[in-house]
Amino acid sequence: MSEERADILQGTLDLLILRTLRAGAMHGWSISQRIQQVSDDVLNVQQGSLYPSLHRLKRRGWIASEWGASENNRRAKFYRLTEEGEARLEVETERWQLLSSAVSQVLQNA
């Protein structure tokens, strides 16, 4: 099917999740809220892709998870960045900036 497009979207979401988690451990819902807020409601994270992404990042060892109490005192699964994830975030950020500046350059000058 449309594997490629899915990949790009997914890769971007991964990057956003990693970046968001740099602020500290968070559960899934607050990650999606945070991305939405920070992007001024431009980016709306679909749950259908958020959770698969979280579990995939965990499988790769870039984030870890543990159960804890949420702000309203309920049991929730918190995700945090691992050391490996932090290193990955740097690489991915650099790559994203390179790509986006290249794309804007093309959009402006071509």
Binding site: H27, G28, W29, S30, Q47, Y51, S70, R74, R75, A76, K77
Partner: peptide, 11 residues
Amino acid sequence: LDEELRFHLEM
């Protein structure tokens, strides 16, 4: 997973 998704929905 069930619990995680349920939590999300409730939030």
